[in-house]
Design a protein around this nucleic acid. Structure first.
Length: 157
DNA sequence: GCCAACGTTGGC
DNA sequence: GCCAACGTTGGC
């Protein structure tokens, strides 16, 4: 059963363009330091799942395209790197706390689907992203939400 | 186990 | 830059 997810990223740090230009159009999604998000990365996400790529903290917050999970959850080694900025001394190679997945660029939307637009779409009532105070950096998306957003973005579902 | 203080996220 | 909503930390 294929699942769908939404990944937030600040485009000034790592945009969909960055992903598209990465080697093999693939990157490891490191640096997530929230337990709820960790559980999704480690236990729920599976190779082949769809990812909505969302730009946050920018002029027009929006879903700008899609990616896919290409590697299941595995330990985030940046937790062991004091230089990384995501260092966590409580996490060890023997007992890792933090996990990441690999994602690969799939497609860029013809038109980004902005947060404001999503708020006005009836089909997206109840979408996690639109809930006030919702800050999870990786979060589940329903098949219906996925389909509606891809259509709005000008991609075939 | 409670809860105040603090840091972060992220839209506006 | 502001600020609401969270998550985390640490004293008790």
């Amino acid at each position: 059963m294929m699942a769908y997810w939404l990944f937030k990223s600040e485009p000034s740090t790592f945009s969909l363009e960055h992903l598209a230009k990465s080697p093999k159009k693939t990157t490891c999604w490191d640096g997530v330091r929230n337990y709820q998000a960790r559980n999704l990365l480690r236990d729920e996400m599976r190779k082949g799942d769809g990812v909505l790529f969302y730009h946050s903290s920018c002029a027009v917050p929006a879903v700008v395209g899609t990616a896919e999970i290409v590697k299941n959850g595995y330990p985030d080694h940046t937790a062991q790197d004091p230089e990384s900025g995501h260092f966590d001394p409580k996490s060890t190679p023997e007992e890792p706390i933090w996990y990441m997945v690999d994602i690969r660029f799939r497609q860029r939307f013809a038109e980004p689907v902005s947060l404001a637009e999503m708020r006005e779409m009836k089909a997206l009532e109840g979408m996690l992203l639109l809930r006030r105070g919702q800050r999870l950096s990786v979060q589940p998306v329903t098949a219906c939400e996925w389909k509606v957003i891809l259509k709005k973005g000008g991609l075939p579902a």
